[in-house]
Design a protein around this nucleic acid. Structure first.
Lengths: 251, 251
DNA sequence: TCCAAATCTTGATCTGCGTCAAAGTCTTGT
DNA sequence: ACAAGACTTTGACGCAGATCAAGATTTGGA
């Protein structure tokens, strides 16, 4: 089911965000050594499922490059995306043995994985890891709650604007660009199909398509092809999203 | 703004869930002593706001008794509840100095609080606290994501059934009753007004009222007065919620 | 006890988004 | 380069839930 290939363990650690973000900063070198031992890389192609909901989950890890989604599905096929995993995001749950969601690679994807049991043992011995994971999980919880407002109370147009502004912001932070500079034109590639956007926003793909067209017609966004977006005025987009213009809810 | 009264510190610790759930189980006695020193109780009346979004947050804590809600509000007044805090739930975020949501007591409420800075220092020194908080936060994240499916993809009727089944389950677990016993009639008081239910479900209060009436007419629930609910068949309710009947998504 | 305010129910009507349908445009493999 | 499939756009129409409105019931304070 999982056609992954392991990458060389000797691959440069700078590419592994968990080293940087979750562990490195405050750990002793022997702990880093131990982490190194249980670390491995996995590669997935666009469209591949990383893990199915309910599957036994034998690793935790984080996204090195590419984009993955967390999705829930009802018996009758209705689908809701509950998370968007960009580089540096953590996947998996220490203390839980089976996956709660489908994880799907939407682009080619590289993950940095740790075997779960050794990782958990290490977490027990290394306080900073649990503290760092707590911090990351609280951020995710905030993002999930912000998204509840989007899903429960925003119109289709506001939903699209919210999604675009999140992607713009996260894309900018990955590439270390500044999204809040006034007058700046922001440009990025949409990493999601219209259907994936619909699943994230609780809409149909037709409605997504219509609202994207409407935002383009109104000059809020510009499109080259279907995927390349430029945002001439970030403040305007945030207004359309229903957020206050000063950096917004997801700051 | 906060008309709280501190309760005696000598109040029986059995009433303070964080002692049990977050700290006690694995801590040394001197750590418990230190926690005891920074602990205090606060009482709120139904309808009082515990803290406003954006306020400086000088404590973390957990609910001892009563019910509180976390809500977000847009500038134009649209409101979305993003969390329901029942006894034992943790509030606040180590490492963040201002509140991200309004916290409102919907019934009379007692909270067990810890001053934030000493709590954070203690967390640094006491690995089990961060580990326990991580576990609790991951549970909350799962609950938030389950709720995203409710908000994004369920019909009004399914939303009401989902809310009732969650409340039934949580109420049962607080009172140590078994909700999954087949044939068992389950009874509880709704702790939320129709408007609060609407804010949680992303609906209007009129729609909530209509769907509650419809579920009653169809025999899925029984009502005495407006608030006292009995569920003659939990499996039936879970079907109406769109969950699989075997314990459901929130198990 | 009684009045006023809060909460809840129900009805009539409206509308944003879903559904169904068809055609257009990219992508990919040969 | 071309064909087949995947993805996207656009149109016509219907419906679930919102909105507006009027009462009914419950709650709480004087």
């Amino acid at each position: 089911m999982l056609n992954e290939k392991s990458l060389s363990v000797s691959q440069d650690c700078n590419e592994c965000p968990i080293r940087h973000r979750a562990v490195c900063a405050r750990c002793e070198s022997d702990e880093l050594e131990r982490l190194e031992e249980i670390k491995y890389y996995r590669k997935f192609e666009a469209g591949q499922t990383v893990i199915w909901s309910g599957d036994r989950m034998e690793f935790v890890g984080s996204v090195v490059s590419g984009i993955a989604t967390l999705t829930q599905t009802m018996e009758d096929g209705r689908t809701q995306m509950v998370g968007l995993l960009l580089p540096s995001d953590f996947v998996g749950r220490p203390g839980r043995s089976s996956a709660a969601y489908d994880v799907v690679a939407t682009t080619d994807l590289v993950m940095c994985c740790f075997r779960k049991t050794p990782f958990e043992e290490m977490m027990m011995r290394t306080p900073h890891i649990a503290q760092r994971l707590l911090e990351m999980t609280l951020d995710e919880l905030d993002a999930a709650r912000e998204w509840m407002l989007v899903l429960g109370r925003k119109t289709a147009r506001e939903k699209i604007a919210s999604l675009l502004s999140i992607i713009a912001r996260r894309d900018a932070s990955i590439n270390m660009r500044d999204v809040s500079a006034p007058g700046e034109r922001i440009t990025f590639d949409l990493p999601l199909t219209r259907e994936a956007m619909a699943d994230y926003l609780g809409l149909t793909l037709e409605t997504v398509s219509r609202q994207v067209s409407a935002l383009r017609k109104d000059g809020v966004i510009e499109l080259e092809g279907k995927r390349h977006v430029t945002i001439p005025d970030m403040g305007r987009l945030l207004e359309e999203a229903g957020d206050d213009a000063d950096g917004g809810v997801f700051a």
